[in-house]
Simulated assay, not measured.
Amino acid sequence: MSHTSVPRHPFPTGTAEAGLAVLQEELQELIDGLEADSTDLGDTQRVALTLAQSHCLLDPRASIFPTWDAWVSAMQVGSAVFAAATTTEGHVQCRIAHKDRTLRATGAQWYVHPGTWLSAFYLAVVCREKDRITALCRVPLSLLRENGSRFGEYDYAWIDTLQTYWLGGQDLVTKLVTAVDATDPEAVDDPETVGKLLYPPMEMFHRFIRRDQDGFNKALANALQWHKQYWSDEEQAFQISGLVALAPLAMACIAHDAGIPIEVESEYVPAVLIKPNWCGEFPT
């Protein structure tokens, strides 16, 4: 397969610098308040991910340090959500934004669900944080079900697949098939979102475990085309969430590290994040 390019949908950049400054300030306040109220982790995770993606508006390759710094902070907050939710002690030490912070145990919370788990997992994969990925893969599905009423079976089946893959468990292919089958448009409430955003990384993963290099790159190109279609829709076009295709980016990182050449270029999957160039830049 020759190199393919999927350009990002048009997105206004006029107020980007000012927007980054506001987000940065909001995030810093949230992070500094976490030791006093660790249940703010849900809002902090949302803002941290928004800031990381916003950096890629003006730095689409993720080639400058502040972008990496923001991605690491988002990864640290995402992991902290689950460290605080699962700890059996009264508190847990988490490094966030260049400082060790003592967070209180939170147990299950409104924000502890499949969506935040997947974000945390994908971020840990992009940042190549093996210990954090392992910790996330030990989070029981039962905990994610406690507040995950608005999530579909495909979410749980997909998480089960990713946890099984990372921990080297049994029945990986069967679990992946279960996840893919659960995304059948006939079986889901929102076929548009499921078909364009949730199914494509499953197809990429399927190609990856089969070591199908061409198939993987085709699946990546398709995933980015669907991502673009979804986020180009009038209602979604100015949402920061559309700037980076987080799940396909994480799958591309896994494939890259396993020796599959990535032959698709796109602002949706920042090139410098696909290669672990930044890893080890500072203690995380």
Rank of each mutant, 00 (worst) to 15 (best):
Y122F: 09
C56R: 07
E89Q: 10
L57K: 04
V77Y: 05
L118A: 11
T50S: 10
R61G: 06
T87Q: 07
Y111M: 07
T87Y: 07
I64H: 03
G115I: 14
L49I: 04
L58S: 15
C94H: 03
A85F: 05
G115P: 10
S79C: 11
T88H: 11
A105W: 08
W117A: 03
F82L: 11
A62M: 12
Q45M: 10
L103S: 12
A124I: 01
T102M: 12
L103G: 12
L49H: 04
T86K: 10
G115N: 14
S54G: 13
T116Q: 13
Q76F: 00
A85N: 10
Q45D: 08
D69F: 03
T67D: 05
R101H: 04
A108W: 02
A97W: 11
V81G: 03
T50K: 08
S54Q: 14
I64K: 04
E89F: 04
R95Q: 07
T88A: 12
A105C: 13
V72I: 15
A84L: 08
L118E: 14
W117M: 09
L58Y: 10
I96P: 06
H55M: 11
I64R: 06
T87K: 09
T44L: 08
A83T: 05
T116R: 09
H113Y: 13
A83E: 09
R61C: 09
L103M: 12
S119L: 01
D100P: 02
H113E: 15
S79F: 02
Y122V: 00
L103V: 04
W110D: 13
A120V: 02
F65I: 11
G78V: 02
K99S: 14
L58R: 15
E89D: 14
M75Q: 07
T86S: 10
S119M: 02
I96G: 05
H91E: 14
A124L: 02
Q45V: 06
P60C: 13
T87E: 03
A84H: 12
D100H: 05
A48F: 03
L57S: 04
A52H: 06
V47L: 14
T88C: 04
V72K: 06
L57M: 09
G78L: 04
C94Q: 09
P66L: 06
T67I: 01
D100C: 09
T44P: 03
Q45K: 08
A80D: 01
D59N: 15
A74R: 04
A74L: 05
Q45P: 01
C56W: 01
L51E: 11
A70W: 00
W68E: 01
A83I: 03
G107Q: 12
A84T: 13
F82S: 08
A97H: 12
T67Y: 02
D69L: 02
S79Q: 05
L118D: 13
L103A: 13
A83K: 11
D100T: 15
I64S: 07
T106N: 14
C56Q: 07
L123T: 01
V112I: 15
T106F: 10
A124T: 01
R101I: 09
C94T: 08
R95P: 00
L103C: 11
S73P: 01
A85C: 11
V81C: 15
W71E: 04
T87N: 06
R95A: 08
Q109K: 11
Y122W: 07
Q53Y: 07
A80F: 02
Q76G: 04
A48E: 09
A108K: 02
A85G: 12
Q109E: 08
Y122T: 01
A74D: 03
G90A: 13
W68Q: 00
Q76K: 03
E89T: 05
D59R: 14
C56G: 03
